[in-house]
Structure formats: C-alpha cells, structure tokens
Write a protein that binds this DNA or RNA. Structure first.
Lengths: 330, 330
DNA sequence: TTGAAAGCGCTACCAG
DNA sequence: CTGGTAGCGCTTTCAA
C-alpha cells in the first residue's frame, strides 16, 4: 500500500502540513518533531509522490538528455559522466534515443526542467520555444540556446604547436569531414586553420576523409596515408575510435609508434591510456565537459530566464596529455 | 503561458469537464463539440499536464529501461528498436544508464508504470518489490519477475544442426565465457550441449574464451584458431562484434569465406547483411525481441498482477538466416 | 511552532 | 450529452 504524508501525520499525531514541512526540512518545525517525523517516514517506507509535488511546484527536478545516435559509441563516456554528475545533484536524468523532435515532445509532456542536446548529427535547427535548452556543440551567435563548446580551434592549435615544437611538419589529419555533423566539420576546419597559423601547408594528401567515425574507418584512412611515398611523420586521429584504427594499421605494417611514426588523438578520455599504445591526446577532459554541462544546465534551470543566454555560452579549455606516442621525427 | 483545460473551456464556452472528456475521446461528448474543442486545443497550443494526469490516474504511461552498460554497444540496436516500438503505443520510454539499484530508485520516484531490465551484466539479484518488472535474460524459475528469453539452447542446436547438415564437424566457438554475464555463459553452455546432442566432441581447442565482446576480442580469438594445425572448418562467433573481428582475422590471413573456412554468427540483426562479408546468422530477430518485450511489458502493466508471473516467461524462437558465409567444407 | 485550507491540472463520478 | 464537484498528494500561505 502507498504511504502518504497523511498516513504519517495520523501516526505521528500531527497535521499533514507539518509532516510536509518536516520532510522538506523547513525551519518552521521543531527539531524534535522533525526528527520524529523523518524517522517515522523511513519506517513506514514513505516515498514522495513526484507527480503531486511537481503539480504544485511546477518543477520536475528532471533533466532530459537527447541522444539520437547511440549506435555511435563515441559519446557514451560523456553520457555516463553526465549521468553520474547529475546524480550528485537533487536532479535526475532521463535519456531519450528518439530523433530530436520526438524526444523534445516526450520531454515536454514530461515537463522536464531542462534539456541537454548533443549537436553531433543534428541537422535540423531547433527552436527553443519556452524550453530550457543547453547544447553541446559549436557556439554560433545565431542559435537561440546556449552552448558548451569544446573549442576545437584552440585544441587543434595546441596540437599543431606541440607537434611542430617536436620538429614535425608533415602532419596528417584523419577525420570525418563529409558528414552532416557540424562538430566534425568544425574540427577539421580548425585543423586547417591551425596548420595555416603555423605556416604549414595543408597538403590534401594528408587530410583523409573517413566518412565514418569507427575503428575501421580509421584503419582504412591510415592505410592510405602509409602507402604514400612521402609519408607524414605524424597522424592526428579525429576521435578515439579513429585513432584505434590508425594504431592497428600502423602495427600491422610492422611500424612502431612513435619511432617510425607518431600518432596523436583528439578526445581526452581516460580510455586513451588503456589502448594498445597509450596515445598522446588533446581535448577537454571528459569529466570537465560533463561537469560544465551539468552545472550550466542547473544554473540555467534555476535562473529561469533571468540571465541572457549569451552568458551561458562557454568555450572550454582543451588539455594536451603527453603519453609517448609522439616523438621527434627522424 | 501555460494553457489548461480551463482556458479552453472558457474560450469554447463549455465546462472544463467536457473539455477533459473531449480530449480523451470519450463517447460521452457530441462529435461536433468534441471536434471544436480538439481544434481549439491545438490552436491554443494546449499540452496536457502529465503530473496532474498521473496524480489522479495513478499511472504515468512511462516505461523505464535500465541499461547500465552503454559502453558495450551490443545492445544498442535492441534499445533503439524497443524505443521505437514503445513510441507506437501510448507509452513513452525513458532510459537510465545508472547502476541497476540507482536506476530503480529513480524510476520508482518517477512512478514509472513498468521497468525493463537487461540481465546482461547483472550480478545482484533484484527484488521486484511491488514494481512491474520484466527482464531480458535467461529464464530461471527462482526469479521473482518474468523474463523474455532468447532461447540460446534452441539457437545453438539449430546452428550446429545446420552446420553438420553441410558436413561440418570441426566446429569452433568464440565467445565470452569467463564473464560474470549470465547470458554469455548460457550461450556457451548451449553450444556445448548442442555439440553433444550431435555427438560431436567439444574439443577445448575449438572453444575460445574472448574475455570481452568487442571486435578486437574476436580478432585475437580467430587468430588463435587459425594457427592450429588442425583447423576448424567453421567458426561460430558469439556476437556481432566478435564475428566482425573473426572476419577481419580471416581475410588478413588471405583466406576466403566460405571457401577456405565458414563463419556463422550469433545475433540476428539487420546489420549482419552489411558486413564486409554478409554472415549467415542465428538468433531471434531483434525486431521480434523488441516487439515481444514491449508487448509483454504493456500487458503486464495493464493486467496489474492479475495473472501469475510464470505466464509471462517466454522463450523466443530463433531464426537462422542463410547468407553464403557457410559452405560445404573441403 | 503548528494547523487549516486553498489550489496545482486533471479525471471520474453523479446529477441533470 | 453536459456541467458540477470531489479529490489525487503535495506545497504554501495565513491564522491561531
């Protein structure tokens, strides 16, 4: 049977409004009564009814996360971290794997307090309507919702700077350019810009479009690069999975990393250290990303449209982690 | 501003209980009034308030799915299909990637109408309490909740029967045995049983424990098999990803499928047809699995504990799909 | 410090 | 067929 605050009130011999206050740790209740009620509630197995609470408070304490492309595992680490992070707060997270528009619909019916959106693979532009939206993607002043941006431009600049400081100039990039995914495109453009900044040629032979983001795509791309007479001295993989494939291709050829060729990867996730060959990588540490996304979301939710959206746009700080997969070219 | 049924009632000039009925397509309202109200509701941008509705009806129309291991992508197809399937019903699905116990907690607070649980990677035994639970896993009479079972025993029997009918007797199996995942263990035991049923030896050299379920694990395992002097004539991969690795290893060795060696895979998902080499596979088609899980869940939810749980236990029918990756051994 | 009562938006019942 | 009304479980004034 369901236990309500009325049941507790009856047993405790107080009014149910007092129970409500006690359970919400209101200062308007005597410590003693409060403690008694709380103990009692636990004993009786009381579970607050969310529907009732949100009906009156107009809040659900739930954040929705839209992730339409679970088959691309790249983001699963981020999702998991975000989920963990949200669990540290009074909020809960629910996930939808539906297409963005359906997911929005579902979340709206649910009256979630806020929605987190991954821009990867997002083609349609979204109207925020009256929703509290936060996206993970590339900042664009035209957008009607705030964005947490991994700052590809800075990341690629740091990567190229690091590699040139080691003496590399034949730098290859393996990534998914043709896709409709604006984040991948931005990543590639940032690489090109970084090369120009360092007055290096953007030799088209050294930029490979994988048309996909999984291990095998990286494998194929790396094979193309290794076949060139004038090989690059270092390959930057555009994502964790691509880089896995790149490593595979290189070791299959009997080449050694970093002696024969250096490898660097975008994406800063702990798993980078556990690869066949631990990779030097660049990117915003995934924990920081998760933390910023969640904190911003919550501030956004709690500041109910008081602050202008622009103030929530945030470019993150990429970090370069050295792991011996890059050496001075010979 | 939020539109409620009262607002609609005011505009339409009817009572708000009539609006409620109209919106719920009750037969107790004149067609004309009903149509007028529905149109009006749409115009005014009315969104029903879930909290209010579930407060009175004691239902949320939401099914929770617990999936604590998103980093293992194997099940993502199933999850997606389940999500699609649920979207065809009046119910919605929400997903939690938290550990089972936390997820249960969250879902309980949410008062979801039912919870779907994947047994893969489930070690703790779960008490159903008063929840409507349905699991995808291996049927076990000791369990306190109904289970949809992919019937590994029958699947493996069909697989071995098919292969022996082609003339194979040196049949290898690549799978994850050591894991705490009861489903993987059951899969392997079913293979062994099937071999015994066909009076074939379960040569230990032919059963490889991958200790993982991804492509690379399958790749390594296949390499071990290919190194044997007395090679198997066919390899059964325990999952889609493992089989991908098996194919890779075989083609790297310059061998051809099925001329030099046959390959078969567990898992019956459409992606099997799109592999480098389309694989003959065995397993319950993922759509059927999704459909059965969702239909059972809904029946369960709607039959509120009237029917005994046993009646919901269901072993599914595996299907063998031929695709030319298995031939008569030479 | 406590209790009584209003009301969140909706469904369901009963009276007309 | 339509309207009035009780009440789902809870938070939040306002009085006592």
């Amino acid at each position: 049977m369901k236990v309500t605050i009325k049941d507790i009130a009856a047993v405790a011999g107080v009014s149910y409004s007092t129970v409500s206050k006690a359970l919400n740790s209101s200062p308007l209740v005597q410590e003693k009564t409060k403690r008694k009620i709380i103990t009692l509630a636990k004993e009786m197995g009381y579970k607050p009814n969310f529907a009732a609470r949100s009906l009156v408070s107009n809040q659900t304490m739930v954040i929705g996360l839209i992730w339409p492309t679970i088959d691309r595992i790249v983001l699963s680490t981020l999702v998991t971290k975000i989920s963990n992070e949200i669990n540290e707060t009074p909020y809960s997270m629910i996930l939808s794997v539906d297409p963005v528009e359906n997911a929005m619909e579902t979340f709206k019916r649910f009256q979630v307090d806020g929605i987190i959106l991954f821009e990867e693979n997002l083609n349609a532009s979204i109207e925020a309507e009256s929703l509290t939206l936060l996206s993970y993607g590339v900042i664009d002043e035209g957008k009607m919702y705030p964005t947490i941006d991994p700052n590809y431009e800075k990341a690629m600049n740091m990567a190229v700077a690091y590699l040139t400081s080691l003496g590399h100039s034949k730098i290859a990039y393996v990534g998914n350019l043709s896709s409709a995914d604006p984040m991948q495109v931005e990543k590639n453009e940032s690489f090109n810009k970084a090369m120009q900044n360092h007055e290096l040629p953007t030799d088209n032979n050294y930029v490979i479009d994988t048309e996909g983001l999984n291990l095998y795509d990286g494998y194929i791309a790396a094979n193309k690069l290794l076949k060139l007479e004038d090989r690059p001295t270092v390959i930057i993989g555009g994502s964790y999975d691509l880089s896995s494939g790149i490593i595979r291709a290189i070791s299959e050829k009997g080449l050694s990393i970093p002696k024969d060729i250096s490898v660097m990867s975008y994406d800063n996730i702990p798993q980078m250290a556990d690869m066949e060959i631990p990779l030097t990588c660049i990117g915003v540490p995934v924990e920081q990303l998760a933390s910023e996304i969640v904190q911003s979301m919550i501030r956004l939710v709690e500041n109910n449209e008081e602050i202008s959206m622009q103030q929530f746009n945030k470019k993150m700080e990429p970090v370069l982690v050295e792991r011996n997969s890059c050496a001075v070219p010979r």
